[in-house]
Amino acid sequence: MYFHVDSVEKTTVLGFNIGKLLNSGDIICLTGDLGTGKTHITKGIAKGLNIDDHITSPTFTIVNEYDTGRLKLFHFDVYRVNDPDEICAIGFDDYIFSDAVSIIEWANYIEEILPREYLHINIEKDLNIDENFRKITIIAYGDKYNYIKELKI
């Protein structure tokens, strides 16, 4: 499934619509280059979960926790993780196999420890069109994510 957006606001709206569909225990893996909008889509997802907290990327803390919404949210940023064992040491499995929604930015850095089922969202800049234009690809790994077919911007 592909979406094309031309602004931060539309990226956030797409995230919001994803967040409204998410269920307890869902795992979202985000990939894309620096500055493509991974944190912006996460902000939208949080809003879709009725979380009004200020969402920031946990680049130096690895995980931020938000528990004020419809579902608890664990927001990971593994950009600075050099070895998957580092993330395992913080209890990664306890986080992602809980009732919370888990969002993992830079998930491609820890592919070998990801579960088999998750929602993968890749964000790419399309400089052939415009500096602000993004192609967002969403792939569901596992039947539990079939609800994503209902997604609209």
Rank of each mutant, 00 (worst) to 15 (best):
Asn146Cys: 06
Thr31Ile: 14
Asn146Pro: 03
Ile87Tyr: 01
Gly44Leu: 04
Glu111Val: 09
Glu131Tyr: 13
Val81Arg: 04
Glu9Tyr: 12
Ile139Gln: 12
Met1Lys: 06
Gly15Gln: 07
Ile103Thr: 00
Glu65Val: 13
Val13Gly: 01
Leu21Arg: 00
Gly69Met: 03
Arg116Met: 11
Glu105His: 09
Gly44Ser: 08
Glu65Leu: 09
Ala107Met: 04
Tyr141Ala: 05
Asn23Trp: 05
Thr12Ala: 14
Lys10Cys: 10
Tyr147Ile: 14
His54Ser: 14
Leu114Val: 02
His4Ile: 14
Ile55Asp: 05
Ser102Ala: 11
Asp85Arg: 13
Leu22Pro: 00
Asp83Ser: 08
Ser24Pro: 02
Ser7Thr: 12
Ile55Gln: 05
Thr56Asp: 03
Ser24Gln: 12
Gly142Pro: 02
Val101Arg: 05
Asp6Leu: 13
Asn108Pro: 05
Asn23Val: 07
Asn50Ser: 14
Ala100Ile: 01
Asn128Lys: 14
Thr12Phe: 10
Glu131Met: 14
Asp26Trp: 08
Arg134Lys: 09
Glu105Asn: 09
Ile139Glu: 13
Asn23His: 13
Phe97Gln: 09
Asn82Thr: 06
Val63Asn: 03
His120Ser: 11
Asp53Pro: 02
Pro115Gly: 06
Asp130Gln: 08
Ala107Lys: 01
Phe74Asn: 11
Ile62Ala: 01
Ala100Gln: 05
Asn50Asp: 13
Phe60Cys: 04
Asp6Gly: 15
Glu117Thr: 10
Gly15Glu: 07
Trp106Glu: 01
Asp99Thr: 14
Ser7His: 08
Pro84Gln: 11
Thr61Gln: 01
Lys72Ile: 01
Ile113His: 01
Tyr2Cys: 02
Leu119Thr: 07
Ile28Lys: 05
Cys88Pro: 00
Arg80Ile: 05
Leu71Tyr: 12
